[in-house]
């Protein structure tokens, strides 16, 4: 997979823009079952990446993703910094040697290892795994936002088993996982941008 610098910049602007626009919503979701900082933290990361969009988009995609990952690790804080940072860092590393669907599967596994988590525990992985699986089974890119959104919705009745929400036990049931929501927002922003670029 190769993208032009203009496409990489458009992706950064779309993803960061959507995260910033939904920061309050993410923080509200996190207030219900976590520590009410997911939107604030992700917005800080998005702004930090946006500030360097020109430099980052001048790099080839694998290096650009690694630069984004490093920025997220250093600026986001919370657990989402190392988790989304690992996703981008690992995706960048894998893309240098793998196809995109293979790279996304490996990067998702890296996030699971970083968070010592797996599917079904009410986390961002509940969106990342089905999106990666859909790509691998050659589903059209246009299907991914709906798959991601449905997967995020599906975290609502689940009892959290990782992260701060797991402290709440049964009381975490009935709320969408904020990490699953941010992962679905990012998926939609990426697909929207790449579809326009086609």
């Amino acid at each position: 997979m190769t993208l032009t610098g203009a496409q990489i910049k458009a992706l950064i602007e779309a993803v960061a823009g959507d995260i910033i626009a939904h920061a309050d919503e993410l923080t509200r979701l996190d207030a219900a079952i976590g520590d009410a900082d997911h939107g604030i933290n992700m917005k800080r990361g998005a702004e930090a990446v946006l500030a360097e969009a020109d430099t980052i988009s001048a790099m080839p995609l694998p290096a650009a993703l690694q630069a984004v990952g490093m920025k997220l690790v250093m600026t986001v804080g919370g657990a989402s910094g190392p988790l989304y940072g690992t996703l981008a860092l690992s995706l960048g590393r894998e893309l240098a040697v793998n196809t995109f669907d293979e790279a996304l599967c490996k990067a998702t596994d890296a996030v699971a290892a970083r968070g010592k988590s797996e599917a079904g525990q009410k986390t961002m992985l509940d969106v990342l795994f089905p999106v990666a699986a859909a790509l691998r089974s050659a589903r059209p890119m246009n299907d991914l936002p709906a798959i991601a959104e449905a997967a995020a919705e599906a975290t609502i009745p689940v009892k959290a088993q990782r992260g701060r929400a797991s402290f709440l036990g049964d009381r975490s049931i009935g709320h969408m996982d904020p990490g699953a929501r941010s992962a679905s927002l990012i998926t939609a922003a990426i697909v929207r941008t790449l579809e326009v670029a086609k």
Binding site: D35, D37, R44, V73, M74, T75, V76, G77, G78, G81
Partner: peptide
Amino acid sequence: GDPAGGLGTSVE
């Protein structure tokens, strides 16, 4: 404290 000085942690 997080990178912005609030409650949280910072890798750096």
